[in-house]
Design a protein around this nucleic acid. Structure first.
Lengths: 243, 243
DNA sequence: ACTTTTAGTGTGGATATTACACGAATCGCT
DNA sequence: AGCGATTCGTGTAATATCCACACTAAAAGT
């Protein structure tokens, strides 16, 4: 076993899968490529990792250069390294995932970036992307759906003040399912993650809903405590199994 | 944004974290290095990915060359890419995890491998390893402990015929906790993952225990069905939360 | 036959999960 | 002012799950 001849002759990239919630719809942020290969194709915002930066660092830098987003939390999901996934040679890519609320961020492509523009796309409208980005997106979507049942991630996707119905719709959109209103409220309120603002919607043509905000301190506790969420209303007989 | 000057001047490796269960103890498979850097240090069995092979493929190949193990199931866990983690330059490594039963495998280091020898170490005896392998190991151990509560992975670690007490000890070793015998048995049997062999231990100085084996077909169902396991006997008040 | 050791078994109280329906509050229209 | 349309907000009861807890059974060795 020797050092391969092509040692130090490979490249790695990061690709960011940024999910957003807007208008009752789960979206993902794509860029249109400004260079070959896949010129003009849409793909995930991703680019090469520099030699002097860490992976996560690179993911944040690339995301900002290509879409203008800063201050999003990125989480490493999986690394894709099939041969032939990049026409320029052996390129391995590390996929990062984030969940943000669309309204909070203004998209802005830097001049020197490899992107012509950045836009949000509804998940259901996406069929083909540059490279193997569709596969990466699908993997991240699976992860998101599993994740959402274990951590209260959904909150990141709503405005600072929201109604319980909005929160429920969010979960229904991500999980592509329907939930029972009363049970949803019971659960969510019992978690003490919400702050009751004692304010109400205005100018709605129906009984106005109470507004809530999200208790960030309490959220931190949840994450560190390894709490287990569970969306359920479950299909199967024996749901929570041990061992 | 341009292609970095050091494009195609990086290297990647795979590192395998192979957990084994033996003698009531959770172990991990390490190799002693036969080359610099970290000559003579113990570390994870890992090496460079060739340009013409996929990541997973590389992980299997490297594992076999360094330890002789074949036919283990490897799962990608995380990619480590801090700058400075490898003294030779920018090297990114993808960590793979596996769980096997020690007795089933004979360790055999190939002549040309970068390893002098391969040995099993108890988790608790490991303090320092080559590179950042201790950090990689710790990350994989966390993943294993979480994993074990979601999938019945533990079965891989026992001989073909085992007693319920052995299975319980396995879980106790992995999770570093004690479990209630009656509740454990109720749960595990209700999952229908075990086949009652109608055989008993022999030559033990006490009442002999029934022997079971593991129903592989049923196990497959579990995996594909996205069942949720849960080890519990739980510390916290509200265990299973929704939303 | 007695000791030692591990195997094997059931119940009840507390909590969590699910299914399910109707009055309340606002707006806009007449 | 009254009515219709719309969404908000709330409780209960049946079922399933979770967990704590203690004694008898079977074999080997003396």
């Amino acid at each position: 076993m020797t050092v391969p001849a092509d040692f130090f002759k490979s490249a790695f990239t990061v690709d960011n899968v940024i999910f957003g919630f807007d208008d009752g719809d789960l979206k993902v942020l794509l860029i249109q490529r400004a260079e070959d290969p896949f010129l003009d194709y849409w793909g995930l915002p991703g680019y090469f990792v520099n030699a002097d930066e860490g992976l996560k660092e690179a993911a944040y830098r690339v995301l900002e250069e290509m879409t203008g987003l800063t201050d999003v939390y990125l989480e490493q999901i999986k690394t894709f390294g099939k041969t032939g996934r990049h026409p320029m040679g052996r390129v391995i890519t590390v996929a990062y995932l984030s969940l943000i609320k669309v309204d909070d961020y203004l998209l802005k492509v830097k001049n020197n970036a490899v992107a012509q523009k950045a836009e949000w796309f509804s998940i259901s409208d996406i069929d083909d992307l540059a490279f193997d980005h569709k596969e990466i997106l699908d993997t991240c979507l699976d992860t998101l759906r599993r994740r959402v049942q274990q951590k209260p991630v959904g909150f990141e996707l709503l405005p600072p003040k929201f109604t319980l119905t909005e929160l429920q719709h969010l979960y229904e959109a991500i999980l592509d399912t329907e939930l029972d209103k009363r049970n949803f409220r019971k659960k969510i309120l019992s978690m003490n993650l919400l702050i009751d603002l004692d304010q109400y919607q205005e100018n709605v043509a129906h009984r106005p809903a109470k507004l809530y905000s999200f208790d960030k301190a309490r959220y931190q506790e949840f994450l560190s405590d390894g709490y287990s969420f569970d969306l359920s209303e479950n299909k199967r007989k024996s749901r929570t199994l041990q061992y």
